[in-house]
Amino acid sequence: MPKDAEHLELDAGGRTIAISSPGKVMFPEHGETKADVARYYLAVAAPLMRTVRDRPTLLQRFPNGATGSSFFQKRIPATAPDWLETTTVSTPNGTTSRALVMADIAHVLWAANQGCLGFHPWAYRASAPDDVDELRLDLDPSPGVTFAMVREAAAEVRAFLTEVGVAAFPKTTGNRGLHLYVRVAPGSDAFAVRQAAVAVAREMERRRPDLITGAWWKEERGTRVFVDFNQNAPHKTVFGAWCIRARTGAQVSAPFAWDELEGIEPDALTIRSVPERLARLGDPWEGMDDAPQSIAPLVERYRADLAAGIPDNPWPPVYPKMPDEAPRVAPSRARTPPTD
């Protein structure tokens, strides 16, 4: 057994974090251990903290590694170290819980030591909970969609956003899709950000109905890339940038530059390759915070649709019925009006 299989202490920005059972294998394909996970996060600490610092974060824990069972942890236990920063978050039904705030890399390593293989940050900072500062466009491949189609959809979304003066930054999801992030200027709440996402989904379906859909109901999507606007609903979280997915190959949700889009291969971006890539290419998201974006052009499109009689898109089932929302029922289950 390796020496650090019994005991390991790591310096996390001036705080010592003990890693228990550091030799425990978390990813069976190549044998990466808890120690490897912790050291990976230290290697990407600077760009990781730029994206997650001060964000409440939902933890997905895999006590027995990537192939074992998992559970989501919203509540930080009372037995946690007293130096951990936490904040109160709400679920769609109003339930509150004490969530971890990603204050520094020591908080990340503490969670990694708990077997966390999924960090899901909120779209706001704990210090400014009323300002949602990220628009997150989730390009979700329906069954039968190839990654080449997802790439093409991302290019189409970028072209539209560029037209309306909005800059987006891409990352892999660590699986089959892509995420496009927009740093939103102060003053927008989650409802406005979701409206902007709805506007993007609708416009992309108008432009490329053969490739992209904004249809909430799966039965309507076909073999197309779905722009999941509801990932921006209040209290929703999205898998974090630079974070390791619970896949056997230890893939990472990795930011990349737009000029890499045609060659990016998500399965190749792993705990093993991403630190070297970061050292060689730098952080492709480094400039994201330099110019926060106005989403007003997108919100105005949504409101123009509403004024023209087009209702809001359906919300997820865990949310109460929302003002201006279309009937929340799958088309195949909707009642057909009687005929004379």
Rank of each mutant, 00 (worst) to 15 (best):
R75A: 12
G115P: 06
F160Y: 15
V184G: 06
L100A: 07
R158W: 03
T79R: 12
T86H: 01
G187D: 02
L84T: 03
T146R: 13
A123C: 14
A112K: 00
V184M: 06
G94C: 09
G177K: 11
D131Y: 05
E85R: 10
Y124E: 12
L84I: 07
S70H: 04
R151M: 04
A192Y: 01
H179N: 14
L137P: 13
A99K: 00
G115Q: 05
E152D: 14
W122H: 14
P186L: 05
A153V: 13
A128S: 14
A106H: 01
G177T: 11
I105Q: 02
F191R: 07
G187S: 02
P77H: 11
D131F: 04
A128W: 07
S69P: 00
V108F: 03
R125N: 11
A112D: 04
G187Q: 01
R158K: 13
T172V: 10
S188V: 08
K171H: 10
N175S: 15
T96L: 06
G174S: 09
T95A: 15
F119H: 05
A99W: 03
G174Y: 10
A80P: 02
H107I: 02
L117F: 00
V157G: 12
F71R: 06
L178Y: 08
D133C: 14
F147K: 06
F191Q: 12
P121N: 15
L109E: 05
F169P: 07
D133V: 15
P81K: 12
G68L: 04
A167V: 08
T87K: 05
F191S: 11
T86E: 05
S142Q: 10
T96Q: 12
